[in-house]
Each structure stands twice: as C-alpha cells, then as structure tokens.
C-alpha cells in the first residue's frame, strides 16, 4: 500500500473517531441497510413499506420509529406501579408519558383522612431513579372540610421502594 492510501486511510480513521466522539451531541443513531436492487442505502429511520405495514408480518409495531408509538416507559416499572397502586382508584394512567394519577382514597379504618398518589416513570430503563412518587394527604377539619395535611417524607420513598421491588420481581419472573 503506497503512502497515498495510507494517508487517506489515516484521514478516514480520524474522521471516524471524531464522529464516534461527537455522536453524543449531533449524531443520530440510525444505521443503513441495503435492500436487494436498491440504488441507495435505507437508513434505520426509513421503514420498509410492506403488505403487512411498516414492520412486516409479526413485526413489533410498538418499536416503530420511536416517534411516540407504543409504551414510552419501562414496562416493568409501569406494571409494578399499577400493581402497587392497585388498591386505590386510578383517575388517569398514561403509558406514553409514564404518569399514573390516582383518585382520592379513604381507608375504611380512617374515614377522616384521604390520600392521592402521583407516580411518574421517568425512564425506559429499569433503574432506581426511574420512578418518582408524590403522595398527598387531606384530613377533615372541625367544619368537615378537607384540608391539606403534611405527610411524612419517607412515605413517598417507601412507595417508590415497593414499586421497585415489584418491578424486580416481575423482571425475574420474565427471564425464568
């Protein structure tokens, strides 16, 4: 190999490493595929148009282009949150945004106080900081009106822990 080739190779290798290093900022993690007879590569964000839709027969339609289709958050955290809060009435649950908001719930033993819980799932990954819980508590005052009451700080943390424990159990079951 003569020096011209060696030099052009060095340039390509340099460019390659620059691209790898800068990928985190301006890069797009899409990769080419070559279809038979095609005159140009098809990049990862260009889907094949098929008789059975963009992903083909048996294709996982949820994966799609990642553009807002399917469940947007970690499925174990999502199911664990629904499981853990199953005893409370759920007002809204949005698997795309990863929010679960319960309705006010009174324990039969304590009819003078009621709770409401917001769960936010923040990540597609199953990780400890992927779930955030906020708990609200109200109690009746002397007039019988509901007023906000401060709750113990550890309560939200405990709920987060039980969601994470449940998620771990679900994951272990899924891999067995």
């Amino acid at each position: 190999m003569n020096s011209l080739w060696a030099r052009s190779l060095a340039v390509v290798v340099l460019m390659l490493s620059v691209v790898v290093l800068s990928a985190c900022e301006g890069g797009k993690a899409v990769y080419p595929t070559r279809d038979r007879g095609a005159s140009a590569p098809r990049m990862g964000d260009e889907k094949r148009e098929t008789v059975f839709g963009a992903e083909g027969l048996f294709g996982d339609k949820k994966k799609g282009t990642g553009g807002g289709e399917g469940i947007g958050v970690n499925s174990f955290l999502w199911r664990a949150s629904l499981d853990t809060l199953g005893f409370m009435p759920i007002a809204t649950a949005d698997p795309f945004g990863g929010t679960i908001i319960t309705d006010w719930y009174q324990l039969p033993e304590a009819p003078n106080e009621r709770f409401k819980v917001n769960v936010f799932i923040l990540d597609r990954a199953l990780r400890a900081d992927g779930v955030k819980v906020s708990v609200f508590k109200q109690a009746r005052d002397a007039m019988g009106q509901w007023v906000d009451v401060k709750i113990e700080a550890k309560m939200a943390g405990e709920l987060e822990n039980s969601i994470l424990t449940r998620a771990r159990q679900l994951r272990i079951v899924s891999t067995e």
């Binding site: 790898v20 095609a38 005159s39």
Partner: peptide, 30 residues
C-alpha cells in the same frame, strides 16, 4: 447503540451498505 452498530457475520461490507448508484424505478439494478 448510540455509539455505533457492529455487525458480525455474512452481510454486505461497510462500503456497500452506504453505496449510492444510478436510480432505478423497479429496483432492478445491480
């Protein structure tokens, strides 16, 4: 992943994967 794709096995090489040539309406070129 976000830092690249590694393909191991029988598949077109990196130069072919990215190659562009004359367009053909019926994908009947090559």
């Amino acid at each position: 992943s976000g830092i690249g794709k590694v393909i191991v096995g029988s598949e077109a090489n990196g130069a072919v994967l990215l190659h562009v040539m004359a367009p053909d309406a019926a994908a009947n070129w090559g």
